[in-house]
Design a binder for these strands. Sequence first.
DNA 1: CGCACGTGGTTTTTT
DNA 2: ACCACGTGCG
Length: 734
Amino acid sequence: MNSSLLSGLNPEQRQAITLPHQSALILAGAGSGKTRVLTTRIAYLISNGAVSPHGILAVTFTNKAAKEMVTRLTAMLPINTRGMWIGTFHGLCNRMLRAHFREANLPQAFQILDSGDQLSAIKRLMKAMNVDGEKFPPREMQSFISSSKEQGLRANEVEAYDPYTRRKVEVFAEYDTQCQREGVVDFSELLLRCYELLSRNAAIREHYQERFKHILVDEFQDTNKLQYQWLRLLAGKNNSLFAVGDDDQSIYAFRGANVGNMQELTRDFHVQNVIKLEQNYRSHGNILDAANALISNNRNRLGKNLWTSENGGELLRVYEAATDVDEAAFIVDEIRQLKSEGINLKEIALLYRSNAQSRVLEHALVSAGLSYRVYGGLRFFERQEIKHTLAYLRLMQNTDDDNALLRIINFPTRGIGARSIEQLQEAAKQNNTVLFDTAARAGGKISAFVALIESLRDATRELPLPEIIDHVLEHSGLTAHYQNETGVKKREAEERLENMNELVNAATLFVHENEDDSLTSFLTHASLEAGEHQAGDQDDALHLMTVHSAKGLEFHTVFITGLEDGLFPHQNSQREDGGLDEERRLMYVAITRARRRLYLSFAQSRMLHGQVSYGMVSSFLRELPDGLLHWITPRVTAQNSYTLSPALSHQGRGGAASEAYVYSPLSPERERGGGEGAARQSPWRIGQRVFHQKFGEGVIVGVESSGADARVQVNFKRAGSKWLALEYAKLTAV
DNA sequence: CGCACGTGGTTTTTT
DNA sequence: ACCACGTGCG
């Protein structure tokens, strides 16, 4: 049994999997078989009789990762994973809180606020408290509350030495009171409340400590302070905490992840030896060498060098485009070529730093007829029509849920205007009750709404879940509302109706897959697993996504696009402490996604925030060893680039400060790019120095040609930026 | 009440 | 360029 589990593993993997009952930190590099080690260890422990499935707690960050773990485990062991505690931090905390709702001081059917719900709850509260939304942006308030909780701090524990922070703390405190009154918890509350439950209630804590002999954590570098505290509490003094992570892939510090947890773990749990998994099974040598060279520029690493037994493979292909459009065109050409060589589209990924960059790429792909999938869009359970439907269901179940009530009291519109709602809120505040109870005592349209909710609840009491939803859709007026849409909104409404129908399907599926098929359980599922819920995994389509969402994935070919300073590394990162290092880790993650071929591209100019901006090649590209790169376009060097003063290169509104920009000139041998049509052969290229009778000396920074009306944008030393029609302007190249 | 228009902001994201 | 949000009018 054991021998088959352990076959094909390298010594370090084997060592990690078979460690005795002790805490351990596994430093697992990209592509080193991290998930395999984690799941195999669980299988090993169980099959060995060291622990029963009952005694395992395995934690991940995403539902996807949790699902993957369960799938692999069932393939290895003939066990029922249902009773096992494998899930996300939030999912597991939810499970514990449901089991001990009384001790946690929560209603049995407490509901979970997602980020959107939380934001509207905060806005509502701020209005009621008369907090100036200008001085205290609700989003900032939201992140203040969440990050405080993720530090393990309640409002009364947050240090506030200035009136501004004190006000924020007041809102924080009041917000928690409001949530408690309404019987809802937000994401970070799930964790904090569970942590408090365990730390305050010795009986419960000891019960779980007794039970979970082995705790395993995936992507440990992404844990925040509270998550680590929670793990420590559960592990107690005697249990084993087996953490797998990679400090070089820590890319979520911006949302509170604390890589320092890795060092703290080794201290707190007296980890004897950190096991390093350094053999990479994913990428060819040159790709790995590039990744290693790049990441070696980071300070404060735990230290680890990935190696592979594969040969060097291809060089990394570097392309300098004139514009973002040109970059996209190049990528399309290359993809066509790859396709003709038999590479499946789904084996190719286009990565970018920020979502806005997908647009140009998508446009080029559509024109080329290449199918693609963009990741990270609006999630299924976050769609407006779905949220509305869920709000009816929530309110039916828990009339204390003011958030839900406010969302639907006038949707579909039933003549309850803003004024009436305001009055209702005031009355509720006076009576110190939730909105629903006050509404029940009102008259007219408002009490009709109350009657509607009650009749929905009564009529569906005995129905199975999918039929409950179906009934609500029909009788709330939602279906009718979207059916009645006409004109430009017709298409959109049809899609929404489809989604509502899909919600019924999702409920049907949920009932089949879950023992607990109650409405509460389904609503929890909806909040906690907002869900990929995207069909088409089997389709052969390109993957378009941010570098962040690419973590954990791998592809035959990867295009890393937009490698320009200011974009990647991102401008805003340079303000933050350690920001550049995190960007570099992000680049490291991007590079290590590629198995066989890697493209690195950048553009001299791109459309950003509605105006053309000019960037220079990313410093990260310059950190890669020359010998690993194959420049498709002539190599950029420091000597042949121009520097423009900020005053000349910027003409945006608002007078925001801008950096100096460097342009690398296009050389004549360049095979591709240089814009469209006329610009390709003409001397009017970006970077060309020109002279104009009236404006004097300048540099071409933009070229636009549609047939005869070719125009160039020139930054003149004296006169600033001008668009000139080539037909009329007397320009001379210098 | 609901639409039309103006304004401001715009890194990354899971739960 | 694009989207989300707020204000003012019919």
